[in-house]
Amino acid sequence: MLTVLFDGIAYGMVLFILACGLAVTLGLMNLVNLAHGAFAMAGGYAALVLVNAWGVPFLAALPLVFLATAALGALMERTLYVQVYARSHLDQVLFSVGLIFMAMAVVDYAAGPSQQFIRIPEALRGRIEVAGVGMGIYRLLVIGLCGAVALALHLALARTRFGSQLRAAVDDSRVARGLGINVGLIFTVTFAVGSGLAGLGGALGADILGLDPGFPLRFMIYFLIVVTVGGTASIPGAFLASLLLGIADVAGKYYLPSLGAFIIYGVMLAVLVWRPQGLFGRAGVR
C-alpha cells in the first residue's frame, strides 16, 4: 500500500515539474499553450542524446537539459508565442496544436516512433526497504529533486524581487506595467524557466512516464487537469493537484487494472462537479 503511495507521489512530483510552467504562463499572460508537453518531450530526447549517445553522466545531464530546453523556450517565446498573446483562446489552441504536430513529426523523423529508454546508472536502479516499504532508489531521487525544485520555486516566488514582480504581473499586468515592471521580460524569463522545468521533468520522468513521439498528446490531458484543478498561477495549487492526480492514477492502475486508465477522469469529474473553479482556483481565466 505504502509502496503504491510512494510511487504515486513520485509520479505526481514529476507531473508538477512538467506542468508548473504552464500554470504560471497561463495565469500570467492568459496563454493557452497546449504545446507545453512538446518542451517536456524535447527535454527527454535531449537527455537521451546526452546520456546514451554522448556518454554524459545522467545526473550531470539534467542541468544541461534544463538549460537547453529553457533556451529553446526563450527562443520560441520571442519569435512565435509573442505573436499570439493578444489572440483569442481559439487561435492559441490552434497554434499550439500545430506546434505539437510539428514537434511530434520532427521527433518521429529523427528518432523513430518507438519508445526510448535513457540509460540510468546502475546505482539508481535498485530498491531499498525502509520500515517495510519498498522504494525504488530512482523514484526516491525523483522525489528529492522535484521536491527541492518545488521548494526553490516557492521560495523564489515568495522571497525574491523577481517573484514579487511576477506575482504583481499575474494579478494585474496593466497595473504592473504602470509600476514600471518590464512585463515582457518577466514573461520571457518565466516562459523559459517553465519550459526548462518541463524539459527537466521530461528527462527525469522518461523512466516513469515513457518517452516516444506521442508524449505531448498523451500528457496534454494531465496538464490540463493539473492547471484546471490546481487553479492557474498558483504554485501550491498546481503542486497539490499534481500529487492528487499522480497518486490517483498510480493507485487506480494498481488496484483496478481494468479501470485504472479512467481514474483520472473520475478525479476530473469529481472536482468539476464539486468545485468548478478548481480546488484553489480564481475565476480569472475564462
Binding site: 497561463l26 493557452v32 497546449l34 483562446h89 489552441v93 490531458i221 490540463l224 487537469i225 492547471v227 484546471t228 492557474t232 476530473m268 468539476l272 462537479v273 468548478p276 473553479q277 475565476a283 481565466v285 475564462r286
Partner: peptide, 11 residues
C-alpha cells in the same frame, strides 16, 4: 459548460 475555456478544453 461548467467552467471557462480551460475547463471546456479539458472536459
Amino acid at each position: 459548460l461548467r467552467g471557462g475555456d480551460l475547463t471546456r478544453l479539458m472536459v
